[in-house]
């Protein structure tokens, strides 16, 4: 029963991810796009965790951890670029 619940949540989150992608596509300013990408990262990390629970492949939890870290670093880099026009 729990597997079915996890699968339902996973499908729902995947649909929401596409709706967030709409904002990344049509955001008027660069900041809107960064917000959308940041949201996408959190959602996809959750998708990976749920997938690891459904398939029983426990190594995917590590993948989700690293994915969340990479998303945070990417957000910082793009924000610095928007603010200063260069990274450092």
């Amino acid at each position: 029963m729990m597997i079915a619940a996890f699968t339902a949540t996973l499908i729902f989150l995947a649909l929401l991810t596409f709706f967030s992608l709409y904002r990344a596509y049509s955001g008027p300013s660069a900041a809107d796009r960064v917000v959308a990408i940041n949201v996408l990262t959190t959602k996809i990390a959750m998708l990976i965790v749920l997938l690891s629970m459904i398939t029983g492949q426990e190594i995917f939890v590590d993948v989700a951890l690293i994915y969340a870290m990479m998303g945070f670093i990417a957000t910082i880099c793009v924000s610095k670029y928007i603010e200063k026009g260069k990274l450092f």
Binding site: L65, T75, I76, I82
Partner: peptide
């Protein structure tokens, strides 16, 4: 992962807001 998201999500929002 929970602790990490709890710390980094507000920080990322602050960085984006400051940049904008």
């Amino acid at each position: 992962i929970l602790l990490f998201i709890l710390v980094t999500n507000p920080t990322a929002a602050h960085i984006i807001a400051k940049a904008a």
